Simulated assay, not measured.
Amino acid sequence: MNKLFVALTFAASLLVGAHASAQPEKPTVVLVHGAFADASSWNGVVQILEKDGYPVVAAANPLRGVKSDATSISNLIASIAHPVVLVGHSYGGNVISEAANDRPNVKALVYVSAFAPETGETVAGLAGKFPGSTLGPTLAPAVPLADGGKDLYIQQDKFHDQFAADVAAPQAALMAATQRPVTEAALNEKAGNPAWKHIASWYIYGDKDKNIPPQAMAFMAKRVNAREAEVIQGASHVVMVSHPEAVARLIEKAATAN
């Protein structure tokens, strides 16, 4: 009896293993942060996605220039053998729009409070297309670079209200201290041909965003023909920090869509 039980148990385990191996692997989610942030801004989203079985890479976006940043992310995508859901926040939306080109493993784009430019548009131009952005006066004096360019930061004492108003003050203070600068040139660099023209897209943003006017994001979500555009009431620019569950769920919808 014991031998029969062992044999049946072993056979059952083989069947379960065979069934599991036959299941399609979940796509890898590549998260691209924007200006004045870093990869840790995705921590809450990463925890949810990994719990749900998704491989995740929170990429380090150089924030030096649209084309060079897109090349960096594109190289990362090329190293991933499985399908990819590419997610961008803020300026990172500009980057993913170019990085996904010529990468057939990218199955979906997700814009999180992000820019989704048309060819020739700039981040600065899109931010000013509609009224409402209050970013300019909160920027610290530009930091001169050796190549003649300039790095931009948000003044730390203005960071909470401007960038992350719906995040607890202690966490916003940490984000302010660890923010990574973006070059002035990157915000004024013209976009190339956007991948959203041929890759299915999703969009999520907050209606209290002070960096990118919500009206501008509604315009961009409609233009990319987003399969789903979700507006989070009361959310700031860092909706992935204050509402990681909503952002993760939208990413998972993109990952499972046909």
Rank of each mutant, 00 (worst) to 15 (best):
K3N: 11
L4R: 15
L4D: 13
A7T: 09
F10L: 15
A12S: 11
S13F: 14
S13H: 03
S13N: 10
L14Q: 12
V16K: 10
A20C: 08
A20W: 12
S21G: 09
A22V: 07
P24C: 13
P24Y: 15
K26A: 13
P27E: 01
T28Q: 12
V32A: 11
F36M: 01
D38E: 13
S40W: 12
S41N: 13
S41A: 12
W42R: 01
W42V: 09
N43H: 14
V45S: 10
Q47G: 15
K51I: 00
D52L: 08
D52C: 09
G53R: 12
P55W: 00
V57T: 04
A59C: 02
P62N: 09
R64I: 07
G65Q: 05
G65M: 07
V66P: 00
K67P: 04
A70Q: 09
A70N: 10
S72K: 12
S74P: 03
A78T: 01
I80M: 01
I80P: 00
H82L: 01
V85L: 07
V87N: 03
G88L: 06
H89L: 12
H89D: 11
H89P: 02
G92F: 06
G93H: 04
G93Y: 04
N94Q: 08
I96K: 11
I96M: 07
S97N: 14
S97Q: 07
N101K: 15
D102A: 15
D102T: 13
R103H: 14
K107M: 11
L109C: 12
V110H: 08
Y111C: 05
E118Y: 06
G125R: 01
G125W: 06
L126Q: 08
K129Y: 03
G132W: 14
S133E: 12
S133Q: 04
T138S: 14
T138G: 05
A142M: 01
A142D: 10
A146G: 03
D147H: 04
G149S: 11
L152Y: 02
I154S: 05
Q155L: 14
D157M: 07
D161W: 14
D161V: 03
F163K: 01
A164F: 06
V167I: 15
A169R: 13
A169G: 00
A173Y: 11
A176K: 15
A176I: 02
T178D: 13
Q179V: 03
R180S: 05
R180I: 04
V182F: 06
V182Q: 07
A186K: 04
L187M: 14
L187Q: 02
N188P: 01
N193G: 07
W196C: 10
W196E: 09
K197T: 14
I199G: 00
I199M: 04
A200M: 07
W202G: 04
W202C: 06
Y203C: 09
K208Y: 06
K208V: 02
K208W: 04
D209P: 02
K210L: 14
N211A: 15
P213N: 03
P214M: 10
A218P: 08
F219G: 02
M220A: 09
K222D: 06
A226V: 14
A229V: 13
V231I: 15
V231W: 06
V231G: 11
I232G: 03
S236W: 12
S236A: 12
V238K: 05
V239P: 01
S242G: 02
P244K: 11
L250W: 11
L250A: 10
A255C: 10
A255T: 10
